[in-house]
């Protein structure tokens, strides 16, 4: 599963930040994951346990913010919450949408122990 590559991307970011700051141990990491991303949370948890071993994230608590999906209709400008990529605009029925939120996949904060 690609979840392991994603976890390795997170480890890489954390390692780089740790080196920059001269620190070695992350206590908490906060990650934003949009609800439209193809990240399977079960696989992600599994990959996390494997991927963080022997890294600055080995003992870190991960806090995941699932970001709601929002779109703006390109026909009528209505803004609304999306459940799925294929939802239509509730106002005019159009599928021409600008997806504003829901595709996030980023490390938000790192909390290091002294």
């Amino acid at each position: 599963m690609h979840e392991l590559s994603l976890v390795m991307g997170i480890v890489d970011i954390a390692e780089k930040e740790a080196t920059k700051a001269g620190l070695t141990k992350v206590e908490e990491i906060e990650v934003d994951i949009g609800k439209l991303t193809t990240v399977e949370m079960g696989a992600f948890d599994f990959a996390w346990k494997q991927g963080v071993r022997d890294s600055v994230l080995a003992d870190a608590v991960i806090k995941i913010n699932r970001i709601d999906a929002k779109a703006k209709c390109l026909e009528c400008s209505a803004q609304f919450e999306l459940q799925q990529f294929f939802d239509a605009c509730p106002q005019c029925g159009s599928h021409f949408l600008d997806i504003i939120n829901g595709r996030e996949f980023r490390v938000k904060t790192l909390t290091f122990a002294d």
């Binding site: 997170i10 930040e17 980023r106 909390t111």
Partner: peptide, 26 residues
Amino acid sequence: HEHGHTHNHSGSKKIIEVEKDILYEN
């Protein structure tokens, strides 16, 4: 915090606002 910088309080924890896309390297 929404802005990206470091808080360094002696005797407490250090929080870094990273705000970085996990796929940025790719």
